[in-house]
Design a protein around this nucleic acid. Structure first.
Lengths: 357, 357
DNA sequence: TGTTATTTTTGGAACGGTCTAAATTACCAT
DNA sequence: ATGGTAATTTAGACCGTTCCAAAAATAACA
């Protein structure tokens, strides 16, 4: 309670370093050193000051500190869509990771709007972020990355990229992941496999499409552009896309999907068309979202880890902030694994998931 | 390009107000006024300075401004779980809303940990947030709210509360929402209705449970605690809970669920038990998540709007910041509506949703 | 033209910390 | 005591803005 009355007693607001110093009978420099955990101050002095800080309920003013030290220990995270659970988990993991080293994350959701993204970035620069992790919105220009570089602000692209290797990037191996998925279907005997979802402006969609094609070609199957059914990343759109796929000639017997959301739409679309997914038609997704195991049929999918990507991206950014002059890095994390469940119609292997009831 | 070389030419970092002032031949006070859009400066001076700012690529230093003005125009948002799509949408909507008035949102995800929540709040105070919107983590003490009040930092609880009316709160009407859901089932002829999910520490779960009970009692049905099957908010747990409900005596013929996620688990659990949800057993959810319409059977649910709650909470907080001395407010938004779909087995009414295939 | 309003502009002191270099104190062996 | 070294502490400039009061410039008017 004492801190309340003390605080209320001050004419204009906040308690400052100077107040602590006066009450403790030392200079503000000493208090500053204590706050920063310097080994220079004598331990008994430190304890006395610590006690005073706690007793008075002093709140450190990071803004003031940053002004002088020119360090804000703040990074910016801009994602294209938090309402997508992958990015929500990415965000949570990234924040939790950097927080342990005392970094603060400024968060922004561009909602796939480059204009909003630009505003967010401008705002972040005004706030003095020391670096940015960017999951670029649809239609982001490479000029944005170049502008940040020119302005001396480290930026790590993640999960998507709008530049080539000349800029830092951390993502998972979409090509390999989709190769694994496609190859699995080929091994199961499928010869006509569709690709559902994706868009040319999305680098990870392009990579996944390439993985699909690589696997086909490696097994001597033709890549037929007519079997690529692009659609928005929404269940309704995916359900329509799979219906279109069923009407194609030759008719595919299986499909790899851009991601789990698209796969869910595909499962639904198949049922609506009177087919039994996992029996009459095989489907594989990508992401391994939390609810994949709970669908019926449960969804076979490529498991990737938002946490792993977030941690790798954050590490790279912090490294880049510490040493801005290193060459750019392009980090590709392997997919965790192909999770074989019911939707691809594969015989389950030992140790793999089996539905319980 | 000129800004690049100019910037690079400076010995130590950033371009400041003074630099702009010197190059424009005015004082830094004038430039400051221009930046803040003051009507005091002559329009031609303003334009000249604006041009110079744009040409040199000057970046405003909010930290320095805040230090002097004692205003950060920053608020904190602490949610208990961003990976829950309701909160992801809540976050996105809130940020977009306050951003229009020039406010910056500092975001934190407590992941239901009061310790982490405390750390986040401490950090936010150091950053100088002018107010906080808090969706309290499981186990949050009312003392936290009291401490913020004592420290003079406005705080609006949202979606959940750990205090009574003496503190600001914005939420939706969970009681009424669940009354609507339960009443609908009663009107359909159900006499033995279970409540699935929820926990006593979660105020919104408690409210929903109360709504369930109110509806029963109003229709002369007994409230039987043995028909309340509490469980974690996860599909697996909900599937187990519904299995337990089916084993109860008297055996329920319908269930209202704490939220959509629990309802999904219930649907799954029913299927796994060999029952046809929506035909043999009625289920209603709560939240109206985006994917509810796409389940089979599609889920009947109480529709609430994360955006509406976010906007109301933000408005209240900004009002409280502008005038800290107003009495506390307790804002309860009505549920949007009961969305009748297939899972409750109701005959569809005109204008309501019907599955397409 | 001088005087008084009015509009613009400005110097310099804050804001609350950190940083540097220097001052003070403590400790130890003569 | 005394000098020397190491351990602590400190004064005061400084970070980039905003704020205030006052100065300068301009307009209005007799």
């Amino acid at each position: 309670m004492s801190e309340v009355s003390d605080l209320a007693g001050r004419p204009s607001g906040r308690l400052t370093l100077k107040d602590i110093a006066d009450r403790a009978g030392v200079s503000k420099s000493t208090v500053s050193l204590v706050l920063r955990g310097s080994p220079l101050v004598r331990s008994e002095t430190r304890e006395r000051i610590r006690a005073m800080i706690a007793e008075l309920g002093y709140v450190y003013n990071r803004g003031a500190a940053s002004l002088r030290s020119q360090r804000t220990h703040t990074i910016g995270l801009v994602v294209n869509d938090v309402t997508n659970s992958f990015y929500a988990e990415f965000t949570a993991a990234l924040d939790a990771f950097v927080e342990r080293d005392g970094w603060v994350t400024l968060f922004g959701n561009s909602a796939e709007s480059p204009e909003r993204q630009q505003k967010i970035i401008d705002r972040m620069r005004e706030q003095g972020v020391e670096g940015i992790i960017l999951c670029p919105a649809r239609g982001t220009s490479p000029d944005l990355i170049e502008a940040l570089r020119a302005g001396g602000l480290p930026c790590v692209q993640s999960t998507r990229h709008v530049t080539g290797r000349e800029a830092d990037y951390v993502g998972q191996d979409n090509v390999l992941g989709m190769e694994m998925a496609t190859e699995h279907l080929i091994r199961l005997g499928h010869r006509c496999i569709a690709f559902i979802g994706g868009a040319p402006w999305n680098s990870s969609a392009v990579d996944r499409e390439n993985g699909y094609r690589n696997a086909l070609l490696r097994h001597g199957l033709a890549f037929d552009p007519a079997l690529v059914f692009r659609c928005e990343t929404r269940q309704e759109a995916a359900a329509r896309a799979i219906a279109a796929a069923l009407a194609a000639s030759p008719q595919p017997t299986a499909a790899v999907c851009m991601n789990d959301l698209v796969a869910f739409g595909a499962l639904r679309g198949l049922s609506d068309q009177g087919l039994r997914p996992g029996v009459d038609f095989a489907v594989v997704g990508f992401d391994n979202r939390r609810d994949t195991a709970f669908w019926r049929p449960s969804l076979s999918t490529v498991s990737i880890s938002p946490e792993a990507v977030a941690v790798a991206a954050a590490s790279l950014l912090l490294r880049r902030i510490a040493d801005p002059n290193g060459g750019s890095e392009w980090v590709i994390l392997p997919p965790e694994r192909l999770v074989v469940r019911e939707s691809c119609g594969a015989p389950l292997m030992a140790g793999e998931e089996r539905r319980t009831a």
